[in-house]
Simulated assay, not measured.
Amino acid sequence: MTSIEWRRGRVIASLAVLVALLLVFPAVVPNTPGRLGSLLETFLPWLGLTVPVLLVLAALRRSYVALVASLVPVAAWIALFGGLLLPGHEPAGGITAVQHNVSDENPDPAGTARSLAGSRADLIALEELTPSALPAFVAVLAPDYPHHAVRGTVGLWSKYPLSDVRLVDIRPEGIEEGWNRGLRATARTARGEVAVYVAHLPSVRMSPTKGFGSPARDESAVLLGAAIAAERLDRVILLGDLNSTVDDRGLAPVTSRMREPESGFAFSWPAGLPVARIDQIMTRAATVGDVRTLPATGSDHLPIAARIRL
């Protein structure tokens, strides 16, 4: 290879290496200013879309160096996310959980409740329950889910008896009283007691001046992580709209204490064109199998479901 051939495509090759580095080490992007690191991590799998562009550019430049370098982010993406593409498994002897932000603007709460009941899940966690929509969910779910608990705008419906139900305070500083988005209950399953947490962390907004506005969500994640850390029961199931993906460093106080699903992307938001799974099903001292989305309801989120081995 001549020196001219070697120089051809070096910029493309450098970009390919940079993409691979960002995939493997997203933490190198700082969170100040504008929490750019969290923004990158939230949509990290989509960074793989740069690879086809790099391959086309390498072909146009007729650069073997750029072509080979473009395979590096391919390998990185497969190593990080390839396992999520593999067929999942349904753990034997487990329970099925469904998580859904039903939207406070849902035009058909009864229809949404019927759709969720059709999943035949053992546990159903809901967020953005409004006083006007709550009676519809209670009425429709009652025949199959005789046990339920609601605190503020989050609720849990269960086929198992529930006890020790209490509010989990995940309210960030500066948010008014009455903002209740966390609950904890003990579910008495056939395989023993399990602590079930339902949480809805603060929403994130993009701003030209503040960037990725996640400080309140991050603060709430710290409070939720502390509550889980203090949980007396070994087995814990967390169901909730955490308003980010498991790769986001802002959720580290929670994700560092929990196990994530073994397979499945299950992008849940926005329902019309899902680009991220910000709804989560995670466990402690238990295993989450394949996570999947369920059919759309009247919400801007898709429901997700997973089988859990206790």
Results as ranks from 00 to 15, higher is better:
M1A: 08
R8F: 00
R10N: 03
V11K: 01
V11T: 08
V11H: 00
I12C: 10
A13V: 00
A13C: 00
L15G: 08
L21S: 01
L22W: 01
V24S: 10
V24G: 04
V24I: 06
F25M: 11
F25A: 13
P26E: 14
A27C: 06
N31W: 05
R35E: 10
L39M: 07
L39F: 10
T42I: 04
F43V: 09
L47I: 03
G48S: 07
V51W: 03
V53I: 09
V56I: 11
A59K: 02
V65I: 10
V65M: 00
A66H: 00
V68L: 12
V74N: 05
V74T: 07
A75H: 08
A75D: 07
W77R: 06
F81V: 05
P87E: 11
E90V: 15
P91S: 02
G94L: 01
N101V: 12
S103Y: 11
P107L: 14
A110G: 09
A110C: 06
A113V: 03
G118S: 09
S119N: 05
R120A: 13
I124R: 03
S132T: 13
A133E: 01
A133Q: 04
L134T: 10
A136P: 02
A136S: 07
A136E: 04
F137R: 01
V140R: 01
V140N: 02
L141D: 05
A142C: 05
H148T: 04
V150Q: 01
G155Y: 12
W157P: 10
S158G: 15
K159N: 06
S163E: 09
D169Q: 02
I175Q: 13
E177H: 15
G178C: 08
W179K: 12
N180W: 14
L183A: 02
T189I: 14
T189R: 13
R191V: 13
A195E: 13
V196M: 01
A199V: 12
A199Q: 09
H200N: 08
L201S: 10
S203A: 13
P208R: 03
K210E: 15
S214H: 02
R217W: 15
E219N: 14
E219A: 12
V222W: 14
V222E: 15
A227V: 04
I228V: 15
A229H: 15
R232C: 15
R232V: 15
L239R: 06
G240R: 04
D241L: 12
N243H: 07
S244E: 10
D247T: 14
D248E: 08
R249Y: 13
L251K: 05
L251G: 04
V254S: 01
R257H: 06
M258F: 15
E260M: 15
E262F: 11
E262R: 08
F265C: 02
W269V: 00
W269N: 14
A271G: 03
L273C: 12
V275M: 13
R277E: 13
I278R: 07
D279G: 07
Q280R: 04
G289Q: 09
R292D: 13
R292F: 09
R292L: 11
P295S: 02
T297Q: 09
D300A: 04
H301T: 06
L302H: 06
P303S: 08
P303I: 05
P303Q: 02
I304D: 00
A305N: 02
I308L: 01
